[in-house]
């Protein structure tokens, strides 16, 4: 049952990713990526990570994709790839390198997966409890947790600074090396 569910979800994730890659309209790309994120959330649930399932749905599928769709529609940048590539050979070369990377990654993952067997037993039953994750987050990973707070604050300030209008003439920028 688990394996069947995995294959169905993996197929959905792959279809979403490939459709994002090939669709010409950026809005369609964003919606296919949303499908992919949803499938990823189900995979997290299969891997006994209910907390990450929730985070994936709210942060990725909710907040981030809404931001993407908002910007695509705000800019009206749905189709900008009508003109041919400036470098004609860049697409076939990209595909070739991508296939090469897939080969290397698959070989490495198969090699790495052939290690010692995974631990099992009663620890497996209680694994992935959100309470355990939260306790770890506020004890051993307290400093990284606070740093993420600072990162989010910097991101907010950065977005405000990048998109402010009408203050271009103010002497905010030092005339360095212009």
């Amino acid at each position: 049952m688990d394996v069947l569910l995995f294959f169905v979800t993996a197929a959905v994730a792959l279809v979403g990713a490939i459709a994002m890659l090939v669709s010409r309209n950026a809005v369609h790309s964003a919606l296919f990526l949303l499908l992919n994120f949803g499938a990823m959330a189900v995979l997290y649930l299969l891997l006994q990570s209910p907390f990450l399932f929730t985070i994936q749905l709210t942060v990725y599928a909710g907040a981030i994709m809404v931001l993407f769709l908002f910007v695509v529609m705000l800019l009206g940048a749905e189709q900008v790839e009508d003109t041919p590539d400036r470098i004609a050979w860049q697409r076939p070369l990209g595909i070739l390198l991508g296939v090469g990377l897939l080969g290397v990654a698959a070989a490495a993952s198969l090699r790495g997966a052939a290690g010692q067997p995974a631990p099992g037993g009663e620890a497996a039953a209680s694994f992935g409890n959100p309470a355990e994750l939260g306790a770890l987050l506020f004890t051993r990973y307290l400093l990284p947790f606070e740093i993420t707070g600072v990162i989010l604050l910097v991101a907010v300030v950065g977005v405000v600074v990048l998109n402010q209008r009408g203050r271009q003439q103010a002497p905010a920028k030092p005339p360095a090396g212009d």
Binding site: A13, A17, I18, V80, G94, I95, A105, A106, S109
Partner: peptide, 19 residues
């Protein structure tokens, strides 16, 4: 690995900055 490769291909092939 497959999803990562698709992402790399997207960066290499697509020209729409949002994609």
């Amino acid at each position: 690995a497959a999803l990562f490769t698709i992402g790399v291909l997207g960066v290499l092939i697509r020209r729409n900055a949002i994609v």
